[in-house]
Every structure is written in C-alpha cells, then in structure tokens.
Nucleic acid binder design. Structure first.
Lengths: 343, 343
DNA sequence: AAACCTTACGAAAACGGTTTCGTGTTGAAA
DNA sequence: TTTCAACACGAAACCGTTTTCGTAAGGTTT
C-alpha cells in the first residue's frame, strides 16, 4: 500500500517547485521539454493522480450532478436514471442519486444536502407528497444558491426552471383514439389522483379524444387509484362495481394495467376480444404478460438523456437566462396482443 | 440571486477573523457567548452553508461512496441500489452511481474515476465481460490507493476484499428440492455460462439436490443461455429440441423464467399441471404473470444495505485489516401459482 | 507587586492543487 | 555594448474550511 502521492511529494523528490510539477504535468510549454518528460515519467511511475477534491475546490466545479427521484425500483425511473448516467458520463460528469421515496421531507433534505456545493446542478422528479402538499419553496432556494435545476416527468408550474415531460396528454389521446379505432365503445381509464400531473394529463387526453368524436365522457369510467391502500383491491372493487363492463381499459402505468389484466382474466373475460387493455411504460411486465400488453412507450432513457443535456447546457452557460425551456417528449403506441384488432 | 456567502465574507462584515467565525459557528466556547450568538444570527440571516468541497479537502473524506453496477434497468440491481442508498443516507453518506453496462472497459474507467479521491469507498458488482476475461487487476489497484472495496453479488476469488453474495447454491438446491417434493422428475434448469458465478452456483445447488436423493443429473437438462443472441429464440429452440419435455423448469433469473413460461404456453402445455416453473428475483413479472410465478426471492434491498454497512465499517476503521468478510444472504422460496402443488 | 491562569480572540498552517506574476539567465537585435 | 525578448522556473496567492498555537487583557493567587 503506497500512500497516495501528491504534487508536493513529486516536487520535493525532484527538487523543483510544485508549480513546476503542476505545469509539467499539464504539458505547459513554460517548462522545458526535458524536465517535463522527467517529471511525467516520475509521476507515472508512482501512479500520481491529481486529487479531485482539491481540483473541485479550486475550479469551483464538482463535475457532479445530483438526481432526486421518487423511487428507483420502478422501470420507468430506472430507465431515466440510466439515460441520465449515460449522458452525464459522456460529458464527463458524475451522477449522485438520491431517493425521495415520494416523501416531501426527504425530498427537501436531499435538496438541501445537494445544494451545499456538492453538485453543479440538480435533476428532480417531484415526490407525490410534495405535489399533494403543493409546497415548492425548497426548489426556489436553489436559485439563491445559483444551482441550475431541471424538473423531469413530475413537474410543477410554480417552479421556475427548465422542464421536460412526457407528452402525457398526447399519450392518453393516442391510446384512446386507437381503442376507438378498433371499435371500442366503453373505454375505462385507471388514473391517479389529480395532483399527479402525469395522471391528470393522461386523463385529459382521454377526454379530448372522446369528445373530439362527438362522444360523451362517462365519468364513471374514469377511476382514480390512490396509492395509500391495496391497489389490486381498489381496481377489483371498482371494476366489479360497474353495471356494464368496459370493453377497453387504459392503465396509466404498467402496474394498473397488469392488475386490470388479472382482474379481467379472473372474471373469465377474453383479452382482447371482450376487453382490450393498454398500459404505460414498456417494462418487463408488458413484454412477458400473457397476452403481451400493448403499451404507450415513454422513452424514459431518452428523457433522462435530454434532461441531463438541458441541465449541463444550463450549467455551462454563465448567464442565468430567464428563458426556461419546456420540452415535451412524445410517446409511441406499441401494439401487442392485448389490443390486437378484432373485426 | 445572492451569491453564496463564505466564512470570509462573514468575517469581513463583522470585522472579526475567519477562525473566530468558524469557531463560533461550531459553537466553540473559545468564543464569548455574545459574539457567538451575533455571528450565528448573521450567518443564519444570510443562509450561510459551509462549502462541502472545502470540508472534503480538509477532512480528507468525501462522505461519498461509489457504486459500479452492470445495469440499472434490472429489478434485482435496482433493489440493491435502493438498499445501498438507504443505508448510506442513514449513515450520512451519499451515493455516486456508475454503470458498467457489463463492459470490462467501462468498469475499469469507472473504477479509475472513482479512485481518484472522489469517493471514500467503492461497491462493485462485476461486469460479465470482466468475469469472462478473468482480468481483475483494476481492482487490485484500489488497494494501492487505500480505498476500501466491497464486491456484491458478482464476485471473484481473485480479488481480496469483503464480499457479499446471495446463497446461490442454496437457492438452486432449495428450488430443486421443492420441485422434487411436489413430484417432479425431469427438472430442467436454464442457467448462464459458467463464468458468471451466480449461474454456476445455482447449477451446483441443482445438481446437489438431485444427487442427494440418489438421482442422476441429466446434462441435457442443464442449458446455458448466453446473452449474445436472442434469448427467446435460444430457449425456444432448446426446449423444443428435447425429446422428452421436462415437467419443471428453473430459470436462474426472472427473464429466463418468463420466457420459458411463454414457450410452455405456446406449446399448449398447462402450468403448473404439465410444467412447473420457478424463477429468480421477485420482480414485477413474477407477481403479475399468469399464472403468478413462484420465485426464489433474493432480498436485493437487504443485500444493498448490508454491502454498504460492510463498506462503511471498513471505511471507518483505520487499520486495513487482512481479515476480509464473506457474507452470504440466504434466499426464500415464494410459492405462487406456477408450481402450486398438484396431487 | 510579582507570578500565574483564564478568557477571547487572531495569525497562520494545512488540505492539494492551479495560476498569476516575478525574476534570473540566455541569446539575438540594435 | 546596450536593450530587449524569450525561456524556464519559483514564489505566492487562491479556493473555503478547520485547527493549532500564540498572545493581550484581565482576574486571581501568593
């Protein structure tokens, strides 16, 4: 175990000054070629590596971006992290991941921790509890510290910053339209409480699609699943409470759709003949369920990449512009067996 | 946008020295109560927060641990990260996540980046390519820099450090035994190439269980799926190439099992009546497949927590002990519909 | 009144680098 | 010969903290 060697050590050993060593290693032509080579060889031999922390202090940049995410064990979010990690790495940044567990307090704590100079910028997807409480002051403080912020997926109008979201309304619209195209009349949507913008927007697209064709939105077909109690039970109870079963179900996430599929099967109804099902997030469940689930694919990886690109661009600009970007990522409809057209 | 305020700023403003301010803020009784309060009030008012980077440099600790993981979009691994994050946070450390994408080069690069003083310790699950190449020199360098390392899940004997793994042999044994208990005679196992210790060990447990009951291991029933070509095709081809179909299949991960389930269904065989299936990793597929999949649950979250605990303990000890720990996490068999006992 | 403690603060070093500026030595131009 | 630029290097400041040590002022012992 050789203790890590510093500039000072090299300087002393070679009887030159630290500034000379520093310059030599940075290939400055202020230093003669001869000495430069000698120093480099020496440094190389002892595996010299500059201390990052010292550099960070001097350069006032950490080359780290912080990410606060509600959950990691979640296909869509892990895809996003993956995209973030890739883009950040490509631009030689590192990623510090924090999990809010959907809790306002943890989100606030994480943000405080990150904003003390640990990172050059922050990427956040807002926790459900925060959205519910509607308290976004902790984000505003970031601006005071002059730390760029980009919100992704779960955003809020009350925060002034760059944002990037999935085209949730368009996705809801797309899914609904497709289901109508294949002749479905009673389309049910399993959504989230309205404070989660994601769910609300998907519901909006759903309504828009129906109304556009002169249809009447039946409010009984829009169910808001809350995540405080057992999901399966809620969905089961709800579906079975309908006097007339729907002939199509949209789940605003993979889990809702998967549960719906289970419930439909238990009811001995055929998928897609009796009931067509569409989910969101093209995760493993969708690919390996029977029948394979049609889904709205949300391009989480791309979202992570682009959010990071936006953040890094903002970091690298000196002027804190007031023109914040709002980027929308469009979705694709991936048709599989759970909606296969029947004529 | 108030620029972030430093100790020096406070000192100048209050016409005292920086040392006084520092001590006051740290509640040193070297400073009179009166002045202490005054300084604290001032600092508070201007939202003073110490610069982390400066502290890191001074304390020679970053309070960050690095994690190198082969993949994020993977249920087991994301569970582990989740556990790591929780434990690290609980002990006031932060987590820097890097992805090797199963590539030797990326793993090496990541390790180099982390070991330059960015982190106090590193947690690694070895990339498949690295295991295949059998080159572990990059890990040995870590010791030179005196940075503690803990390997988890994918480990190697050639690296001297703390390790923590799932009881893979026991899991394979447990699954096989259970299948025999419910009367299965031809148990097939979909494993990985042997250089992936995880797969190899599960295969070992499988063999042990069979031999223990005086059975003869039929090598044709052990298939090594490689991840270079289409998984579904491989498994499909393999299963259909068997003269006699197995009456039970063990997939050493969730995907293999899910694919097997699909193939079995396509063949119009009944699960579990004709073929029982057991998977590993208790992810979403298992819970929401039809029939719901019996699995070996691996406690990824706990593994992440414990790996982190081991690492932090090692970091906090001054003496680099030679007694490395090797911890094994036992698994549980979660029985669901895909193996339900039939008599 | 001399010697000694406290108390309350400041100066300076340290962490490990980079960078600006100064300076002694050369060699070439005037 | 003088002047000046180029070259090659070192000194010192700097990034923002903490911490050791020094010390002046005042109080307490003898």
């Amino acid at each position: 175990m050789k203790a890590k060697i510093t500039l000072k050590d090299i300087a002393k050993e070679l009887e030159v000054s630290t500034s000379t060593v520093s310059k030599a290693l940075n290939d400055s032509n202020e230093i003669s070629l001869e000495l430069r080579e000698k120093i480099k060889a020496f440094a190389d031999f002892y595996h010299y590596r500059p201390n990052m922390t010292a550099l960070k202090l001097r350069n006032k940049k950490t080359m780290i971006i912080g990410v606060i995410i509600p959950e990691i064990v979640h296909h869509f979010f892990s895809e996003i992290i993956s995209g973030i990690e890739k883009m950040a790495n490509g631009r030689s940044y590192n990623v510090m991941v924090c999990v809010s567990s959907e809790s306002y307090e943890k989100e606030k704590l994480n943000l405080a921790m990150l904003s003390n100079g640990s990172v050059d910028g922050v990427l956040v997807s807002i926790a459900k509890e925060t959205l519910e409480l509607g308290n976004f002051d902790h984000f505003k403080e970031l601006a005071d510290y002059n730390i760029p912020l980009v919100l992704f997926d779960r955003v809020s109008d009350e925060v002034n910053c760059d944002k990037i979201v999935v085209d949730d309304e368009g996705a809801g619209y797309k899914a609904t339209n497709y289901l109508m195209d294949i002749g479905r009349k009673r389309i049910c949507i399993l959504s989230t409480p309205d404070h989660v913008n994601v769910g609300a927007l998907r519901g909006l697209g759903y309504k828009k699609a129906i109304e556009e064709r002169g249809g009447q939105v039946d409010d009984r077909l829009l169910f808001r699943v809350n995540d405080k109690t057992d999901l399966t039970l809620q969905i089961q109870t709800y579906l079975n409470s309908l006097e007339v079963w729907p002939d199509a179900i949209i789940g605003v996430n993979e889990i809702f759709a998967a549960i719906a599929m289970k419930v439909v099967k238990e009811r001995k109804l055929k998928i897609p003949e009796d009931v067509a099902i569409i989910g969101f997030t093209d995760g493993l469940i969708s690919q390996f369920s029977t029948p394979a689930m049609s889904t709205i694919v949300q391009h989480g990886f791309m979202m992570g990449e682009q959010a990071t690109a936006m953040l890094l661009d903002r970091i690298q600009k000196k002027e804190p512009e007031i023109n914040y970007e709002y980027k929308v990522i469009s979705t694709d409809l991936k048709i599989r067996e759970s909606t296969e057209k029947i004529e």
